[in-house]
């Protein structure tokens, strides 16, 4: 099957963006840089979702991961104790274990990639998927959908509880942003 040149170029751009950012995240010594590099990774993956005709998932990837999870990661990174010296905040420890994990994963994926009888199908033009997802969520998958709200609730309660527990300590480490009075220079 012949892939249009522009499509192939855009695909490779997204794939390389995702992979290069992931490599940067893994190897950067500065954990703040690593967190920012996740932006490229998330964005590249969003592009790959679009290539899989998963338009809803792709847009959600940008909205939730780039817009939310990344911010959360950055604040989490800013909370850590090593942030005072960001240049050495991400020492790559446990390299032997990481290598073993990498090789095992690579072997598994390689085995799958080379033993699966891949079928090349002509691309079927698919419409927007949002309606089908809505149909599925509020139809046959109504129970997982409602349970998802309980999961979100659990995350919310857990977050409030944990952050409430360290509230007393945060005063020591935090820079208390005092609300500057804004009425100092009203009319000139």
């Amino acid at each position: 099957m012949k892939v249009p040149l522009l499509s192939a170029m855009v695909f490779w751009a997204f794939a390389i963006l995702a992979m290069a950012s992931a490599v940067f995240v893994a190897f950067s010594r500065n954990i703040v840089h690593a967190a920012f590099a996740l932006l490229g990774c998330f964005f590249g993956v969003a592009g790959l979702y679009l290539f899989l005709s998963a338009d809803f998932v792709g847009i959600i990837q940008v909205m939730v991961y780039v817009g939310g999870v990344l911010i959360l990661f950055l604040f989490a990174v800013m909370l850590t104790g090593k942030i005072r010296n960001p240049e050495k905040s991400n020492p790559s420890r446990a390299i032997p274990g990481g290598l073993v994990t990498m090789l095992v994963t690579l072997g598994l994926f390689g085995y799958l990639a080379f033993t699966t009888p891949w079928q090349v199908l002509p691309t079927v033009p698919t419409g927007p998927t949002t309606s089908q997802i809505g149909d599925a969520l509020l139809g046959p998958y109504i129970l997982p959908f409602e349970v998802a709200s309980v999961l979100l609730l659990a995350a919310l309660l857990g977050g409030v509880l944990l952050a409430g527990g360290v509230r007393g300590r945060s005063r020591l480490t935090g820079n208390e942003q005092d609300e500057a009075p804004r009425d100092s220079g009203g009319n000139t």
């Binding site: 939310g68 952050a163 935090g174």
Partner: peptide, 30 residues
């Protein structure tokens, strides 16, 4: 270059949770 207070994290977490809620609202609204 210093540690941020946990309340930033708290607000981001709350934002993320209601962001996900908004994601579920989209297909329903459609």
């Amino acid at each position: 270059r210093k540690r941020f207070p946990v309340k930033f994290y708290m607000i981001a977490l709350l934002f993320l949770l209601f962001d996900i809620e908004a994601v579920f609202l989209y297909p329903w609204a459609k």
